[in-house]
Structure formats: structure tokens, C-alpha cells
Design a protein around this nucleic acid. Structure first.
Length: 274
DNA sequence: CGTGGGACCTGAACGC
DNA sequence: TGCGTTCAGGTCCCAC
């Protein structure tokens, strides 16, 4: 899923559903899902109460409280992870590899078709800061001037820069493609060669697509689901992502798929010139 | 500093 | 039906 709008959607939904729940038991069938190890994870979380849910970059942070300490579960859904809130006798979900069972009859299921995602126990605030030390600022915390300054730091392809979590946190392939298309910028353009006017257009295009992603509950192209299993709807609003062979809304030119930085990239060859 | 490739894993879609 | 190929929203590591 798992770009900013999808993770933020999950965060908002989890906030309403799991705060106050006490973790009674941990089940898993794939050890690599639970970090650092299933035992350390289980020992860390059992008996603690969920007091907050946050998001940073594409990661979720579930804050736990016990009498004497604050600790955390950090989760990355990578490409195909899902977090589902169910009741303990609800029908099973596909691809579930770990479950946090609560004191109530609710549970949090972690489903992952590709086994890239994980749940990680983080013992205190200092360790949490360590997890996030290499991430750049949140997109929605940026002002335009800071955004321009980031573009000016490098000549690497603008699309790779947008997706570089150390520079700006939260943007992935879908929203990078769509924003560059709206701004009329070729994804391979060196970041520091983008004019101020174009950079302004890109900044507002990013804001627009990310807000639209949030408003529509995220992009459920294939794997992403919200916490009760519903799809989001941003896929119905894709500007260019995944539209190979279709015609551009602006000019009718056939949309092409290219590869930039090893990632599938979609462009209108007419509207996005180098 | 930057890019390109492979690795991590499995599932789905498509061509033959 | 079955097999092979390609692709996948992310990130990390290594060679050049």
C-alpha cells in the first residue's frame, strides 16, 4: 500500500478502533513478520494497552503503555500488507501471518501476500527515534521554499527524488507518477534543472493528488485494503498511473510505460517533455 | 554522488 | 489445463 494516503487512512481508522485495547496474545505462522524476533515481539507487547496510533512516512506507529513504560509497535506494509480489525470468530482472511488478540473479542490481523511487510517491537522513545533518523520531512510539513531547496540539492531524476524517503517522506510510485503528469514534468528531468514555475506546479500537484488520495481512502489497485477489508477509491482517480496504451486526457496522445530508477513509470510523451 | 541490478517473496495476469 | 514470463504500491545492499 502503502504510500502516505493509504497509511494515513489506516491510521485514522485504527485510531477509532483499537485505542484502549489490551493485547492478550500474539499468534503468527511466519517468524520473519515479527521483529526483532517473534519472542521479543511477544514478550514486549503482551499485557500492554494501546494508547495512540501515529504515522510517519509510510510507517504506522502504535503506542503501547504499561504501568512503568511507553513502547511501540512499528509496522511497514511494504507492497502487499494489510492490517485488518476483526472479531475473533469472524471468518478468516487470506494471507494472514500474524494476529494480535485483544482482551475484548477484537483482534488485529496482519495479512501479507509477499511477506515483505512487518510488525516491529520498539522498546522506548529513543529506539523509536533511531528507527526514523534517516527520514526526510513529511510532505505536508513542507512549505514551498523548503520544497524548492530540496530540489536544488541534486541533479538526480525528479521522480527518484520524490520517492527518496530521506529527502521527502511518504511519496511512492503512484502519487509521484500522477503529480508529475499533472505538473507536465518528465520524470527523468534532473531535479535541480526544474524552473521555479514548474516546481510550484509540482508542489501543488503533489498536494492535490495526496489530498485526493486521502479523501478517497487510498488506492486499492491490487492489495491495499482499509481496516475492515474495504477498498479505497483513488484508483478510480488515477491521472496516469497504470494507464499504458490509453489516451492522455489533455491531448489524446497514447500513454507510454518507461522505467525510471528501476520502477514502472507512466508518461504522456506529449505533455511531459524532457 | 548517482544509477543499475539483484535480492527479498508470492500471486496474478497473460501468451502460447 | 498447464507452463513460462512479466509485473507488482517498497526498501536495502553492492558494484561500478
Amino acid at each position: 500500500m502503502p504510500e502516505l494516503p493509504e497509511v494515513e487512512t489506516i491510521k485514522r481508522q485504527l485510531t477509532k478502533e483499537i485505542i484502549g485495547e489490551k493485547i492478550a496474545q500474539v499468534w503468527y505462522d511466519r517468524p520473519k513478520i515479527l521483529r526483532p524476533t517473534p519472542k521479543e515481539f511477544t514478550d514486549g507487547v503482551v499485557g500492554k494497552v494501546i494508547v495512540d496510533v501515529q504515522r510517519r512516512a509510510k510507517l504506522l506507529i502504535i503506542e503501547l503503555s504499561s504501568k512503568e513504560s511507553r513502547s511501540y509497535v512499528v509496522s511497514h506494509l511494504r507492497l502487499s500488507g494489510r492490517l485488518l480489525v476483526r472479531h475473533q470468530n469472524d471468518t478468516p482472511d487470506d494471507y494472514v501471518h500474524a494476529t494480535l488478540k485483544f482482551d475484548s473479542n477484537k483482534e488485529l490481523r496482519f495479512a501479507e501476500a509477499r511477506l515483505f511487510g512487518y510488525l516491529q517491537y520498539v522498546e522506548d522513545k529513543r529506539a523509536l527515534d533511531e528507527v526514523f533518523k534517516n527520514f526526510g520531512p513529511e510532505f505536508f510539513d513542507l512549505v514551498e521554499e523548503t520544497f524548492f531547496a530540496i530540489l536544488a540539492t541534486t541533479r538526480k531524476a525528479i521522480k527518484s527524488l520524490l520517492m527518496d524517503q530521506q529527502k521527502i517522506a511518504g511519496i511512492g510510485n503512484i502519487y509521484a507518477n500522477d503529480a508529475l503528469y499533472l505538473a507536465g514534468i518528465h520524470p527523468e528531468t534532473p531535479a535541480n534543472e526544474i524552473s521555479k514555475e514548474k516546481a510550484e506546479e509540482l508542489f501543488s500537484a503533489l498536494k492535490k493528488v495526496l489530498e485526493e488520495g486521502l479523501k478517497t481512502g487510498g488506492a486499492s489497485d491490487q492489495w491495499y485494503r482499509q481496516i475492515h477489508g474495504e477498498k479505497g477509491h483513488y484508483q478510480e482517480h488515477f491521472k496516469i498511473y497504470g494507464k499504458t496504451g490509453q489516451s492522455c486526457d489533455n491531448c489524446g496522445t497514447t500513454i507510454k510505460r518507461i522505467v525510471v530508477g528501476g520502477r514502472g513509470t507512466f508518461i504522456c510523451p506529449q505533455c511531459q517533455r524532457k
